[in-house]
Nucleic acid binder design. Structure first.
Length: 197
DNA sequence: CGTACGATCTGCT
DNA sequence: GCAGATCGTACGA
């Protein structure tokens, strides 16, 4: 079932990032449904996290949607090419967000191949990397700020469980500029082979 | 206004 | 392993 608002209002974004592992991320654009089990997440926590776009109370046009109530999307363009998809959490005006870095494709795999422009070649790890999953799921910067309780993008708990001892925890990727905060263990990952539906 | 750069990916070496 | 792609945003002049 679709996660409700209270799930997203959790005040501990790091714990919540871990909880999103194993949940199903679904998009429904123009009647095409694609979805995947979330296999990798990163937490970005509020104003004291130097890796967070809202660190030091920074609020700009780009990151304004991080300040929305929990359960909205924060999508921004990275390196001029890749839309990155984040789930906003916590109460309004508290800029916590969870970056979705990888999924295991579940529904609409043919549509994903089409979006990725793949014909025959089955590439490994096609759904790993935050820029890849937005492409597969059809998420663009136009979806910045949309409500995850509505009908375009949402997250479901399908009752799937995995072996928690196989969850790996480590520092976030690509945030070297964040000084000591680059070392925080805010990244969570489960291998695809641990996902057996 | 000008400019430097990023929560990245791909393809080629 | 490394460079190139590619552009909105942030920030200083």
């Amino acid at each position: 079932m679709k996660l409700d608002r209270t799930f997203y209002l959790n005040e501990n974004v790091v714990q919540l990032a871990k909880t999103f592992i194993g949940k199903l991320l679904v998009t429904n654009f123009n009647g095409f449904i694609t979805s995947g089990i979330i296999t990798e997440t990163e937490a970005y926590s509020n104003i004291n996290d130097k890796a967070c776009h809202a660190n030091n109370h920074k609020k700009t046009n780009r990151n304004a949607n991080m300040f929305l109530n929990g359960g909205h999307a924060y999508v921004y363009l990275c390196y001029g090419i890749h839309p990155l998809f984040n789930i906003v959490t916590n109460k309004e005006n508290i800029p916590d967000a969870i970056l979705i870095r990888a999924i295991k494709p579940y529904m609409g795999i043919e549509k994903m191949k089409e979006r990725k422009n793949i014909t025959n070649i089955e590439k490994k790890n096609i759904a790993e990397g935050p820029g890849n999953i937005t492409k597969l799921l059809g998420i663009t910067c136009n979806h910045n700020g949309i409500d995850l309780l509505k009908e375009q993008i949402w997250v479901e708990d399908i009752g799937f469980e995995y072996d928690k001892s196989k969850l790996s925890i480590g520092p976030r990727i690509g945030v070297d500029y964040a000084g000591e905060d680059a070392l925080l263990p805010y990244r969570f990952k489960i291998e695809n082979k641990e996902i057996n539906l």
